[in-house]
Design a protein around this nucleic acid. Structure first.
Lengths: 194, 194, 194, 194
DNA sequence: AATGAATGAGGCTTCATTCAT
DNA sequence: AATGAATGAAGCCTCATTCAT
């Protein structure tokens, strides 16, 4: 099922697997080709160059994240539980898809020079998602809301990064950590004193 | 002034410059040598290998950060202002020293395999710094304190990362962002409802 | 004729030439490439690494030797002349194919670490060839036969080595030397007093 | 006792140790210097270049071998036991001093291009030693004697080479092998039928 | 739609050696 | 008598990419 049919899909798949197993800098056209079972040249039929391939992977990740966040935001109609759900969905996406998270958010812009920055606008829409829900709950100016959303975005982003870089306390279970992050996020943004 | 005597220093300096300009994966012995104006071989007089060079850079960064945090924590005796100061010092360190921040906190462990993990303990001591001050202000169990410190650590880390990756709103001035992050950190950790 | 199509063959050929002209330690991927007229990278299309290339050369040599010994052993049905013929065939192989002899028998195992020792079993089968014929002529225990074969093997091996290292008397023609070695071998192993 | 005083001696010593431990191709000026505890530059005070160092090592080996063979030839006055003793002495020298044997007899002349071949005459004197004793026992023409000595030389040389290259049957104890070689040498050269 | 052959640039690292001090 | 600093050449190997088929 996975090995037949479209080569393009298999290339992306194996690139992702390699990314996960060996890290970004170990991902090469040759290795992908070997994993897929084709020649490096064949990859160029479907992708202009390596950056294009990575970019396609990023788009895949964006799609996935959008789906995750979308379904999370539909589960609860009450805003506060929805807030929690969305935060958790984002954290879980990062922790469960480290390879996507890495290329989507940790890769330096230097790598992506050849691609239009407008592709990243999509990523910013996630920010608006957070802003929307904050506005719904807290009200307040659009500027304040965006600022808070950005801070929330930072917290979630940092939590995932540290987890993935294995720089967190080894004894701390991921699930506990996630819960705590969401808990603190709520305090930070939805407490009365703010 | 920069081209005199001390080759070792110039190597580190140019490595840092390259890191900043082109990102980690573009930092190579050859490029450093070219930037410094010596042969790649000469680098090996001062560093056993590339990892040793990077590691020296990391240690430099650790030193710098320790100094910054140290002096920040001495400025105020009252815990809450001290809390703010330390958070700001960390954020400013990351924003003003992006190269150091990258290799210290964003580099994947895969790169550093050849070096003992105990070197990273020093980095974790920063975490304890945050924990100490939280304990002083809020009291509470050691476990809760560490959890909160880790979440704070995530927030600060994420804020810097996003800023450095230029993924934040372009119109937002760094200083405003920093202030907001600290503000939210305080709310998150030092509000009554927590 | 030598520069056509088959690059793999030309690589092996030039590697052999270099080996002969400059000795093993002077054989490098770069030099081979230069001699062949291609880039070092191209060599890696046909051989995984340098050891694989050397190993291919060894196998070529094994093949050649096997053919030589095989046809020598078929020329005479009487055991004693066959004994002489095989000895001579081995000596001549070594003297006429110094490059092969060097990598097959003089190269230290350190060089070949990456390859399984079972590849060397093939070389030891030559020993059995000698043992077989000794058994046929002299009878005796299997152990004694193997011992004697090993000593014979030493003699032939040493004769070739010294000849190749140009440590023999310059005035001594190779053919005379070879004959004498075989003569002595016969005395050593097939005389009555033994 | 070994670390004080003459640096020259310590250099040779450590070069020999390295040769034994890691093989010829791993012996470099840098490694020798590190083992000795001096700088690579210092080596050049005592030796013009690497080849000169190796050559000095070869001379050391020659000396040692000469002493071994000399004392062996003095132990027995009767020629046949003396013959055996000398053969054994040579075999034992090679097996007990693999590093010397390698550079003395296995190193290719290419390595030694820069040195006068007359240095090798000394090595040939060993051949005369064998010739002398053969003449004493068997009589015969000078030419025949030299031929036989050369063949004997081949046998002994080959036996050591194969042993050092670990190409002999693993189950065969060195002492048994040595005895057998000498036994066969005697048969080869001193039997009636010859 | 895919391959086989090839390349130029560059990766890290080690070599023997020299020169000023 | 010895060193510290430096070099140019070369070691093996991998990279993304191209071009003819």
């Amino acid at each position: 099922m996975t090995t037949n049919g479209n080569l393009r899909g298999r290339i992306l798949e194996q690139a992702r697997v390699l990314l996960l197993k060996e890290g970004y800098s170990a991902v090469s056209m040759r290795k992908i080709a070997k994993a897929v079972g084709c020649t490096p040249t064949s990859i160029y039929i479907y992708f202009d160059n390596k950056d294009a391939l990575i970019h396609a992977l990023i788009e895949e990740g964006m799609e996935l994240l959008a789906v995750d966040l979308g379904s999370a935001s539909k589960l609860d109609s009450a805003p506060r539980p929805r807030f929690r759900r969305i935060c958790m969905a984002f954290l879980e996406f990062g922790i469960q898809n480290p390879e996507y998270f890495q290329i989507m958010f940790l890769l330096h812009p230097e790598k992506m020079e050849r691609y239009p920055t407008d592709k990243y606008r999509r990523a910013r829409r996630n920010l608006e998602l957070f802003a929307d829900i904050l506005r719904e709950i807290r009200g307040g100016s659009s500027f304040d809301t965006m600022l808070s959303a950005t801070v929330l975005w930072s917290l979630l982003h940092g939590a995932i990064s540290l987890h993935l870089a294995q720089r967190l306390d080894v004894g701390l279970p991921a699930s506990t950590f996630i819960e705590q992050v969401v808990e603190h996020a709520e305090t930070m943004l939805l407490s009365e004193s703010s």
